[in-house]
């Protein structure tokens, strides 16, 4: 298995072995930081859509490996404003960088960028489609918090219809022995296509709208924000926001070692009183973005 030159566009492109190699490399880099590994290498961040946390996490990951970063974080400064195609932008940028990290509002833009580019492209989000490094850091967090990725009962709560982190993690978890719980109102339930995929892979799952009914069975509760920007109709958004809010009292109904995750940013779905509990894993989860992105960068550039 070789990662050198590989694009990281969709979690579907990664085999179970490749996922486990990335997680293993992340663990190595976390335990033994390599501050010179990327010396002389340049990472280009092309953010056609703003994202503070993902961009900062990539920049920080590259800097901590000793590499340099350039790029933009708003499309206003690019030639796309002047009508340049994405293809042409990438053909230009590939000559200035050893690796490209791209976020784009259009779905499939990362795949197109990878086809245009001779250097590896990492998808940092293409619309509502994929954000594979988020999924990898979610897996890394589950593995780190629970000691394994097998035999776990994992619940997804909130916006399962539009939430891409849920879709990708659900595909990734199907490589492992797991049972999935989809907890959402009918209007925000997981699209049928994903359930068909789970059926094909014989992964058991439960559709539920009441978290408390199943809380005691869960090892991981993956909360999501009801995302305003994904709703075509604001009336629908107002009706459903805040349907699933959890606080410290939830822990009276769960296993003691349950872990609560969230891709962040949160709005009001997790009350602050949970933050100080050991069950709250969401800030540690955000921190795990660094070793995971370091691992991905180092592997696709071929330095590990």
């Amino acid at each position: 298995m070789t990662f050198k030159g590989k694009d990281i566009i969709s979690i579907r492109d990664l085999s179970k072995e490749e996922i486990l190699t990335i997680l293993k490399t992340a663990k190595q880099l976390e335990e033994k930081p390599e501050s010179d590994l990327m010396k002389g290498k340049i990472l280009a961040t092309l953010f056609f859509e703003p994202s503070t946390r993902t961009r900062l996490s990539f920049v920080s990951a590259m800097h901590r490996l000793g590499g340099k970063v350039h790029g933009f974080d708003t499309p206003d400064v690019t030639s796309q404003k002047k009508g340049e195609t994405l293809w042409d932008t990438i053909k230009m940028v590939e000559q200035y960088a050893d690796i490209i990290v791209q976020r784009h509002p259009l779905e499939g833009a990362a795949r197109l960028a990878a086809e245009a580019s001779s250097v590896p492209v990492i998808n940092a989000g293409d619309g509502a489609n994929q954000h594979p490094t988020q999924t990898l850091l979610d897996l890394y967090t589950i593995q780190k918090e629970k000691g394994t990725l097998d035999g776990l009962n994992i619940a997804f709560v909130g916006d399962l219809k539009y939430g891409r982190t849920v879709h990708s993690l659900c595909i990734a978890m199907s490589h492992f022995k797991t049972k999935l719980y989809f907890i959402a109102p009918t209007a925000l339930q997981i699209p049928k296509g994903y359930l068909d995929e789970l059926d094909q892979k014989k992964i058991p799952y439960i559709i539920e709208d009441d978290l408390l009914k199943v809380a005691k069975e869960l090892d991981v509760i993956y909360m999501t924000r009801i995302q305003k920007e994904r709703f075509p109709d604001p009336v629908e958004y107002n009706k459903l926001k805040g349907v699933y809010q959890i606080d410290r009292s939830l822990l009276n109904h769960t296993k003691k070692d349950v872990r609560i995750m969230h891709p962040l940013p949160r709005v009001d779905e997790i009350k602050k009183d949970l933050d100080q509990t050991e069950q709250a894993a969401y800030f540690r989860q955000a921190g795990n973005g660094i070793p995971v992105r370091q691992a991905v960068i180092a592997l696709v550039i071929g330095m590990i």
């Binding site: 779905e107 499939g108 795949r111 619309g127 489609n129 994929q130 296509g193």
Partner: peptide
């Protein structure tokens, strides 16, 4: 919102299931 409907890109689909028929976009994965 697929890139193929917004830029001049050759569309590309893969059949993922025959019965019932289901195809998936190579770009946006829809």
């Amino acid at each position: 919102k697929c890139i193929t409907n917004n830029e001049d890109v050759t569309t590309h689909f893969k059949m993922v299931s025959e019965k019932p028929l289901m195809i998936r976009c190579h770009y946006c994965e829809r």
